[in-house]
Write a protein that binds this DNA or RNA. Sequence first.
DNA 1: CGGGCCTTTGACTGGTTTCAACTTCTGTGG
DNA 2: CCACAGAAGTTGAAACCAGTCAAAGGCCCG
Lengths: 190, 190
Amino acid sequence: MQQLIDHIIRYSSVGPGMADGIRDFFQVKTFRKKELLLQEGQRCHEKFFIVQGCVHLFYLRQNGVEQTIDFALENWWTSDFMAFQNGSPAQFSIRAIEATEVLAISAVRQQEMLAAIPELHEYFHLMFQRAYAASQIRVRKTYELSKEELYLDFSRKYPAFLQRVPQYLMASFLGFTPEYLSEIRRKFLS
Amino acid sequence: MQQLIDHIIRYSSVGPGMADGIRDFFQVKTFRKKELLLQEGQRCHEKFFIVQGCVHLFYLRQNGVEQTIDFALENWWTSDFMAFQNGSPAQFSIRAIEATEVLAISAVRQQEMLAAIPELHEYFHLMFQRAYAASQIRVRKTYELSKEELYLDFSRKYPAFLQRVPQYLMASFLGFTPEYLSEIRRKFLS
DNA sequence: CGGGCCTTTGACTGGTTTCAACTTCTGTGG
DNA sequence: CCACAGAAGTTGAAACCAGTCAAAGGCCCG
């Protein structure tokens, strides 16, 4: 919990006294490897701040293959935000890739929290601006680079992260097949 | 200006009196067809609320082709948000597709505005959450659908919008070549 | 009426997927 | 701690979606 409070203080003008008020609104949850935080189709509308661990956001394709659209690590927020804001059924599932601890808050509880501490809007304003800015960059990359280059770019930038996730998830995230990733890796031996 | 004030009132708990305080912070700007609102590489850090018209966000590929990554219409915000928040050189250009009127605010002026009217954080919190939620859906679509399906999906959902932008921009946005779009259209006669 | 930009067409090419079989790794129960 | 089963990764062949290139036709605007 302190980790989130620190994060809020760091990225907004909310002071320690104020930030401490969030304690009652969040729920600590832990998940084991491969457990689901959120199930596609469900109506369990929470968002998650990751204290420790790693998750992926995915949906099920018609052919039954799970398509990963995002990962999230320590100090990131994650959720199906369309479902979160509209109360509609989730279009994505979220699963722990490792043992993971999160702070969870429902949409309703968040409303109460923001009513009690409106200063937090500043924090979330910045968080979503960052997330959206990152997504603009991501879209640019997916247009600009070939699948091969996408992988090389990613492995140059986040070599440590590659160790944390299985290859088939990485391939899915980058938008191609595990087989093709295998071929790329062979080509660049390693 | 009233249009933005109405938008703020509609999407936040900011009252009319409060919202009216934004007037001094924005600049009305008008652009003719094909004029640039923002130039890649520049350091002119504004964000834009579109009052009337239509713009596209794009960057220049190595081969010299302009790659469109987004459009924006009336009542939408647009900018290179990474540049906006970091003060770094813009990675995108923005150009008017039609004659366009916007309300512009620089990062510095926005800070002053938010200091004066902190309640606006609530409005921007919601705006960015919506934008980010939409981008999650978009990523899902680009993974899920073939290029052909992407076009059909888009033309079913926004038939009116197709009339507003030239085909080569639509093709670019959807991630393929004008030639291929031509082929798709022929296939589905129309 | 002319010029340039946009769109169409067709042939060829290649990056990437699909499928199927095989190998290697991993975790769980005996 | 070992053995085994299922999961994850590798390989190769065949097929295809979509890009590239080049050239011609249509259309808008000065």
